[in-house]
């Protein structure tokens, strides 16, 4: 059983020390959410407030997006830029985002203090909503979610509910192979070993279909898209000052019309812009209001990059970017 309580206390102590020693100007973390089981992002500026920080399987957000906003902040006229470091609490998957941001010179390494937790998996909010139906409404206030290798335990007022792991585990965690942070200043929690998985099971499932079936699948999924651009806005690597889809001069790349043609263009271009960069943190899929399996597109390119060029983003800030480098010996399928 993962001891979330001890880890939370550990995080609070580390955060408090950092703020008291003025190592960081603030800490980005999670606090208990209004509905108690899904945690929400919080920015802690005062050492006295660190008791608000929590760590549990409901800490689903990738907080590195807030780090990008901080780094891209343009001081107002007359304002002195504050370049002191920022503290951030990350899961192993989010720590890969930071590696990628350092690699792309968005986040200078010295401007971030990383408190990394080890993690065996977070919950899927959609799945959780269904499971909560089993708990009486008036008893949902003080829910705690715990987890061990095989099952989740939902503790509520006057009872507990055991749920097998696959029924509540986030989709991204099912194929995750990074359970320990790849970059950190402080690690919270024990090193996790022994979670061997078929990393590409979900991609292979689609690859085994015929091209027509694949198109039917994607046409059905993509036609649901309302183009709210939440997948772009939540992505820590979509940080362009002016996004190509917002660009209106000299012409628009994409119509405002929501149809398969435009939606497909959007999703393919989005995936291509993240090729060799996407670390599969799963935010795009999590925030999608119509549940499009967007991650599959990113993961296909992740797999291609690994198979063809032996490039796997988010592991080492010293690695070369895929589209910014080349190898004369790359496979050549050109006529």
């Amino acid at each position: 059983m993962v001891d979330y309580n001890a880890m939370t206390l550990d995080i609070r102590a580390k955060a408090k020390a950092m703020l008291e020693n003025k190592e960081v100007k603030y800490i980005i973390g999670w606090e208990r959410g209004a509905n108690s089981f899904i945690s929400r992002p919080v920015i802690i500026r005062d050492a006295g407030d660190t008791d608000r920080l929590v760590w549990n399987p409901g800490c689903v957000d990738n907080l590195t997006r807030y780090l990008v906003e901080e780094m891209q902040y343009k001081p107002k006229r007359g304002e002195e830029p504050d370049l002191s470091p920022v503290g951030i609490i990350v899961k192993p998957c989010d720590s890969k985002s930071i590696v990628e941001l350092i690699k792309e010179n968005i986040v200078p390494r010295e401007r971030v203090k990383i408190i990394a937790v080890t993690n065996i998996g977070t919950v899927e909010t959609n799945k959780l909503r269904k499971i909560l139906q089993k708990i009486p409404q008036d008893k949902r206030a003080g829910i705690d979610i715990l987890q061990d290798d095989n099952e989740f335990t939902i503790k509520y007022e006057g009872g507990e509910l055991k749920v097998p792991r696959p029924e509540l585990l986030a989709n991204k965690c099912e194929t995750c192979v990074t359970h320990n942070p790849v970059i950190h200043d402080v690690v919270i929690g024990d090193k996790i070993e022994g979670f061997e998985k078929d990393e590409w099971a979900d991609v292979a499932e689609l690859e085994n279909m015929s091209p027509e079936e694949r198109w039917k699948f994607w046409e059905a999924q993509i036609s649901k898209c309302v183009r709210c651009y939440a997948c772009r806005d939540s992505c820590s690597l979509c940080y362009c000052a002016e996004c190509v889809f917002d660009k209106e001069k000299p012409f628009t790349w994409i119509d405002k019309t929501v149809d398969v043609s435009n939606n497909m263009f959007y999703h393919l271009v989005r995936a291509m812009h993240l090729a060799g960069r996407c670390v599969d943190c799963g935010e795009c899929e999590r925030v999608c209001p119509v549940n499009i399996p967007i991650r599959k597109l990113n993961r296909l390119l992740l797999k291609s990059a690994k198979d063809r060029y032996r490039i796997y983003p988010g592991m080492n800030p010293e690695d070369k970017p895929m589209f910014g480098s080349y190898d004369i010996a790359d496979p050549d399928e050109v006529v």
């Binding site: 393919l268 390119l301 291609s304």
Partner: peptide, 9 residues
């Protein structure tokens, strides 16, 4: 990579 994703979709 573009060719790969076209095939995938």
């Amino acid at each position: 990579m573009l060719s790969d994703i076209l095939e995938f979709t």
